[in-house]
Design a protein around this nucleic acid. Structure first.
Lengths: 192, 192
DNA sequence: CAGCCTAATGGCAGTCACTGCCAGATCGGC
DNA sequence: GCCGATCTGGCAGTGACTGCCATTAGGCTG
């Protein structure tokens, strides 16, 4: 048991490389034929691993393409202060997290969002990840109705902003994610 | 080509009866063992139909237990005016729809909500139905960001209210659904 | 009542997602 | 070089879901 082992041991690096290879392959095949007409065997063969190994990395074929979504949640979550209980506070922290994304990461996000837009399987799986994330944050904030409303109401704005932003980006517009999010939050507030 | 044929032709009645039989069976088996450990063959056998026939009535085993959810959407949708574009207006119409439910229907709702609370498969499938419903309403209202925020923000309050209400009911409290919904809407508004 | 069209059902074979199990290869520490 | 832990591949098995075809039952028409 490697006391303070380096994050990049050989095994760790190989694992990450394999996961990345599978993810890239899945994205390419899904973009070509849609997840509906792509089998796990297809992805595994194209990525150079056995189907059995595929399932050691991802629980479903859709998950293989949604790595960026998990990274997104990780990035946002670590920017949110522990004791936040106000919508303003959470929105601001979220916007700051969005503003910190690298160009490469933003590009990955756009790609996957555009893919999911026309792919029901991907959309559904992404929805479950969203819900799971909301559940975790909600319990982290107390688990009562107030926490639920807070987390889910924010999630609505966040997802709407992400889709709006990705669409604009995909159409060539140079939209700023944090700015789009703030604008969407304002529109949501205006509903009341 | 039965010009104004009765809704309850023999065939129609038998179909509805079969669907109801399958739904009741699924609910019972899910309550006993969870959807995870219940196979379609189990449900079909207990309901007295072949597995092949089961899939002619429901696309997945989870759907067999969520009939009340589809009925719920149908009931709420038909009460919502066509040209509604304000949150207040939609909330009020929704509350009125909720107030019109029969005791029997409310009982079905409580039962399924409590079942889904501890059953990940059911919860996930219900989530997809919710999303699909939101999508439809959103497109019905124009399909822009405003429509999306409107529909999904309301859906957050509605689902939170339904779960809160079902929990109270399950604990013996005589909670009024429309009232709980209005209270949750107020709490959501107070977030801003 | 007999005949006929259509809907409903059951069975069967097939695809595919996903899992448990076991055997072989590989890596890292000694 | 040796050993324990990890990674991998293959294989068999379960279960969801579908397409196809033969049989049955409902309901209309002559």
């Amino acid at each position: 048991m490697w006391a303070v082992t380096d994050i990049t041991s050989l095994r760790e690096r190989r694992r990450l490389a394999t996961a990345a290879e599978i993810e890239a392959t899945a994205l390419e095949l899904f973009a070509r034929s849609g997840s509906e007409h792509t089998t796990v065997d297809d992805i595994a063969a194209a990525a150079g691993v056995s189907p059995r190994t595929f399932f050691r990395y991802f629980p479903t074929k859709e998950d293989a393409a949604l790595g960026v979504k998990r990274d997104f949640y990780a990035a946002v979550s670590e920017r949110i202060p522990a004791g936040a209980v106000g919508l303003d506070e959470l929105s601001r922290a979220t916007a700051e997290a969005l503003a910190s994304f690298s160009a490469a990461f933003q590009h990955r996000m756009v790609r996957v969002r555009c893919l999911a837009e026309h792919d029901a399987n991907l959309r559904h799986r992404a929805l479950l990840l969203d819900a799971e994330q909301c559940r975790q944050r909600q319990q982290h904030l107390g688990g009562d109705v107030h926490a639920r409303l807070l987390v889910e109401t924010l999630a609505v704005a966040l997802n709407a902003a992400l889709d709006d932003w990705a669409t604009r980006r995909h159409h060539g517009e140079d939209a700023d994610l944090a700015e789009v999010f703030r604008a969407v939050c304002a529109r949501q507030r205006a509903l009341f």
